[in-house]
C-alpha cells in the first residue's frame, strides 16, 4: 500500500508578506517553510505508511520553490517525493489543482490514504482537498484530529473529526482522503542523516503528459493581491489602579458600542 501526502512551500510564518504595485506578492528575502498545517499530515504519512507496511510519497504541485518543502519532507522520513509543474495548471485554481492531484494518486497506484494539512495558508483555502477526493471518487474525511483505528487489510477506518460544535467519530471504508488538524500528532524534526540524504535526492518532475491528462479548463484566477486596509492606529493607554483601569475601559467600550 501507499500513503500520499500533498504539501507546498509557504513563506516563513513570521515573514512580512506584501502586495506590490503590479498586483504580485512578495516576502522579501524571508525563507519558505512547509505549509504550517502540512507538518502534521507529513508526520501522519510516516506513521500510517509504517502501520500499513507501505511507503509514504510526498507530492507538491507548483513551481521550483516547492522543492524546499519536498526536501524537508524527505528529511523528516517520507520515502519518495515528486513535483508536478505544467503551464496548464494554475495551483490557485482549486479545480485544476484537484484534477492534477487525482491523476498523481492514480499514477502512484495502490494508494489507501491521501493526506493533506487542514488548509494551504498561501491560497487561504481547503477546497482543493475535498475536490481531490471527489475527482478520485473517494470518501473525504475532513478536519481529522485523530485516526482512532485503521485496518489496511479489511480496508476500514475510524476517525475523530473536530467540528465547530464538538468531536464527531466517523467510520468509513478505504481508500479515503483526509485533512488533518494540528492536534493529531507531534511532528518530528528532520534528523541530521535525513537532511543529508534529502539534500542529495533527485526529485522527479511530472508534467500533465506524464500524468496522462489534458489541461483542465480554467475556472478561477487570482487577478491581483492587495494590501490590507490600514488599521486604525489610534491608541489609548489606560492607567491607574486595576479598578480605575477597568472603569475607564468599560466607559470606552460602551462609547464604542461594543458592549
Amino acid at each position: 500500500m501507499s500513503v500520499v501526502v500533498f504539501t507546498r512551500s509557504t513563506p516563513d510564518t513570521a515573514a512580512k508578506v506584501e502586495a506590490d504595485a503590479s498586483g504580485g506578492v512578495s516576502w522579501g528575502d524571508a525563507a519558505t517553510v512547509v505549509n504550517p498545517w502540512d507538518e502534521y499530515a507529513l508526520e501522519e504519512g510516516i506513521l500510517q505508511a509504517k502501520a500499513g507496511a507501505g511507503k509514504a510519497v510526498v507530492v507538491a504541485i507548483g513551481g521550483e520553490m516547492h522543492s524546499e518543502a519536498l526536501k524537508h519532507s524527505l528529511a523528516m522520513g517520507l520515502d519518495e517525493a515528486a513535483r508536478v509543474e505544467d503551464a496548464g495548471i494554475d495551483p490557485t485554481d482549486s479545480l485544476a489543482y484537484a484534477t492534477a492531484a487525482a491523476a498523481v494518486v492514480k499514477k502512484i497506484a495502490d494508494v489507501d490514504l491521501v493526506l493533506f494539512g487542514k488548509e494551504s495558508v498561501d491560497v487561504g483555502s481547503d477546497q482543493h482537498i475535498v475536490q481531490t477526493a471527489r475527482k478520485l471518487g473517494w470518501t473525504m474525511l475532513s478536519y481529522v484530529s485523530k485516526i482512532v483505528a485503521v485496518d489496511y487489510a479489511a480496508k476500514t477506518i475510524k476517525v475523530e473529526r473536530m467540528l465547530e460544535e464538538g468531536r464527531q467519530v466517523v467510520t468509513s471504508r478505504l481508500p479515503v482522503v483526509i485533512s488533518v488538524m494540528k492536534d493529531i500528532n507531534e511532528p518530528r524534526y528532520p534528523s541530521f542523516i535525513g537532511i543529508r540524504k534529502a539534500s542529495k535526492a533527485v526529485i522527479p518532475l511530472w508534467s500533465l503528459g506524464d500524468l496522462g491528462i489534458a489541461a483542465p479548463p480554467p475556472r478561477t484566477k487570482v487577478a491581483r493581491y492587495k494590501n490590507l486596509p490600514a488599521r486604525d492606529t489610534r491608541f489609548e493607554l489606560i492607567e491607574g489602579t486595576p479598578e480605575e483601569q477597568a472603569k475607564v475601559l468599560v466607559d470606552r467600550l460602551i462609547e464604542e458600542k461594543v458592549l
Partner: peptide, 17 residues
Amino acid sequence: RAGYAGKVLSETQVVGG
C-alpha cells in the same frame, strides 16, 4: 479573499464554468 495567512487580500475572479 484572505491570502498568505491573512497578511494580504487576493482578488479572485471566476473565469469559466
